[in-house]
Simulated assay, not measured.
Amino acid sequence: MKKQGRQVLMGFFYLEKIFGKQRARKLRKKLDRSRLPKHVAIIMDGNGRWAQRRGLPRALGHRAGMESLRTVVELCLELGIQVLTVYAFSTENWKRPQEEVKLLMDLLHEYIQNELDELHHQGVQVRAVGRLNELPSRAWQEVVRAMKVTAANSKMTLNIALNYGGRGEIVDATRRIAELARKGKLHPEEITENLFQEHLYAADLPDPDLLIRPAGELRVSNFLLWQIAYTEFYFTRVNWPDFREEEFLLALISYQNRKRRFGGL
Rank of each mutant, 00 (worst) to 15 (best):
M1V: 11
K3S: 10
Q4M: 10
Q7H: 14
F13V: 11
Y14E: 12
L15H: 10
K17C: 05
F19P: 06
F19Y: 04
K21W: 06
R23N: 14
R25Y: 10
R28Q: 12
K29Q: 14
K30G: 00
K30S: 12
L31T: 04
L36P: 01
P37Y: 07
M44G: 00
G46Y: 07
G46K: 11
A51Q: 04
R54K: 14
R54G: 02
L56I: 08
L56F: 06
G61R: 03
G65Y: 00
E67N: 13
S68L: 00
S68P: 07
R70S: 13
V73I: 15
L75M: 15
G80K: 06
I81L: 08
I81Y: 03
Q82W: 06
V83N: 04
A88F: 07
P97M: 15
V101I: 13
L104A: 00
L104D: 08
L108H: 01
L108G: 09
Y111F: 13
I112N: 09
I112H: 09
N114Q: 14
D117L: 13
D117H: 15
L119M: 15
H120E: 12
H121R: 14
Q122A: 14
G130Q: 09
E134Q: 15
L135G: 10
P136T: 08
R138P: 05
V143D: 07
V143K: 00
V143N: 03
A146G: 11
A146M: 10
T150L: 01
A151F: 00
A151K: 10
K155H: 12
K155P: 00
T157Q: 02
L158W: 06
I160M: 07
L162T: 05
N163L: 06
G166Q: 01
D172P: 09
D172Q: 13
A173E: 11
R175S: 02
A181G: 07
R182Q: 13
K183W: 04
K183H: 14
K183T: 08
K185N: 11
H187T: 15
H187E: 14
P188H: 04
E190H: 13
N194G: 14
N194R: 06
H199S: 08
H199I: 02
L200W: 10
Y201A: 05
Y201D: 09
A202Q: 07
D204R: 10
D204N: 12
D204C: 12
P208W: 03
L210V: 08
P214D: 03
S221L: 01
S221Q: 05
N222P: 04
F223Q: 05
L225A: 06
Q227S: 07
I228K: 02
Y230W: 09
F235Q: 00
F235L: 07
N239I: 01
D242R: 00
E247F: 02
L249V: 02
L250E: 06
L250H: 01
A251S: 15
S254G: 11
S254W: 02
S254E: 12
Y255N: 03
Q256H: 12
R260L: 06
R260D: 03
G263M: 08
G263C: 05
L265C: 01
